[in-house]
Simulated assay, not measured.
Amino acid sequence: METPDFKIFTTVAQLPDSWDHVAHENAFLQTPYLKVLEESAPTNMQCFYIGIFEKEILIGVALSQYLNLNQLESFGERDRCLKTYIRNFVFKNFASHVLFLGNNMITGQNGYAFLKDIDPKHICDLLTACADEIILYFKKQHIKIHIVSFKDFYQKCADEMKRFDFAQMYEFNTQPNMIFELPADWKTNEDYTAAFSKKYRDQYKRAHKKFEGITTRELPLEEIISREERIYELYYHVAKNAPFNTFFLAKNHFSVFKKQCKDRFVLCGYFLNDTLVGFHTLLLNGNVLETYFLGYDEHIQKQKMLYLNMLYQMTQYGIEHRFEKIIFGRTALEIKSSIGAEPIEMSGFIYHTNKWIDKLMSKIFPKLEPDLVWQQRHPFK
């Protein structure tokens, strides 16, 4: 096989006509979603779209994102402790310019797609060459990239990558991806709840009772636009209280997403006395249901067990629309396991462009990660 070559694009309009054909199995690499990033990416993010060619024919596509953490007002406000202050100081001063090969906004192996099987060594060579090219792009603008991260590989793929160039990088495992594989014989929500053990059926009933008075419905584009301020307010409350952030969404992100992806993007609103008190979002990605960002009123969340009910609602949607699995992503691991999702470990690879700091990465990186203590739940009989 002739060694593939690549070309880096900075706008979606530049992409080859066959781009979506190559990316047909992953909505997060297709042009409607890339247009969402182009029109409403976080203000501290710049995206690069990578075309991979063989004999001038497009055979692969990939995504890269640059983040300037100096433009971020907060890394997350939930954990106020010495370790958090140290972590924030280090990020601001030694890791503020970060290049991701992959998508830092979502969880899962969504960084690249190929039309044909590509040897892992070629993939490693291509990704590292793309990183070098983008580093040079920023160097010409007098911006020094501090950290390069190749993110979210499932374990089998990570093991293959470690046989080649990635073996020289620090491999990290952050919080697992919570994935719910839906049994093929579940066709209704009653099938789902019947599978619970008594303890978790009682939890479902208790949450359902607390939920009384809340109405839910899918919002069309016009309503997402008219409620944009409130939607963002609910999102921002949840985002800023996360243990760690590298970006905040643009205010128009959800309306742009609906405009570009249409019926494949679902924003479900939660109402109490006609007041929007929460929302969740979904992306229909082939036979996979991808959960996206959500938001809620903290006071209503406590009264109505809103977050747990959102998880149940998303699960019901997945079952009734015959998806094979639901990607619930990272964070809130214990409560997600209580509704049936299971942890799937994912690896990333990272290096610092300063060779002296890079040698210490195995000692520095674990100290920067928020502590993770949780107990996996097993809700089914």
Rank of each mutant, 00 (worst) to 15 (best):
12 V>M: 15
347 S>A: 14
108 G>W: 04
347 S>M: 07
246 T>R: 03
283 L>F: 12
289 L>D: 14
41 A>N: 09
255 S>C: 13
263 D>R: 03
260 Q>R: 10
5 D>Y: 07
138 F>T: 06
167 A>G: 08
223 E>K: 12
316 Q>W: 09
181 E>P: 05
270 Y>W: 09
208 H>P: 08
22 V>A: 07
105 M>G: 08
242 A>C: 03
118 I>L: 08
238 V>T: 08
68 N>G: 08
163 R>W: 02
68 N>E: 14
345 E>T: 14
276 L>I: 02
336 K>D: 07
96 S>Y: 09
2 E>Y: 12
272 L>Q: 12
66 Y>R: 07
191 D>G: 13
344 I>W: 02
366 P>S: 13
8 I>N: 07
55 K>W: 06
177 N>K: 06
168 Q>C: 01
228 E>A: 02
92 K>P: 01
21 H>F: 11
352 H>W: 03
198 K>M: 00
320 E>F: 05
210 K>M: 05
308 L>W: 08
88 N>F: 03
26 N>L: 01
193 T>L: 12
310 M>V: 13
173 N>L: 06
164 F>V: 07
146 H>D: 12
138 F>G: 11
324 E>C: 10
54 E>R: 14
2 E>N: 15
251 K>Q: 04
126 L>T: 15
275 T>I: 13
110 N>A: 11
323 F>H: 02
100 F>S: 10
34 L>A: 02
249 L>I: 15
329 G>A: 11
340 G>E: 05
17 D>P: 13
215 T>A: 14
113 A>S: 11
162 K>I: 09
196 F>E: 05
168 Q>T: 05
303 Q>Y: 08
257 F>Y: 07
118 I>R: 03
148 V>A: 00
93 N>W: 12
134 I>Q: 06
114 F>W: 05
237 H>V: 14
256 V>A: 00
196 F>V: 02
9 F>Y: 15
162 K>W: 06
290 E>Q: 14
155 Q>M: 13
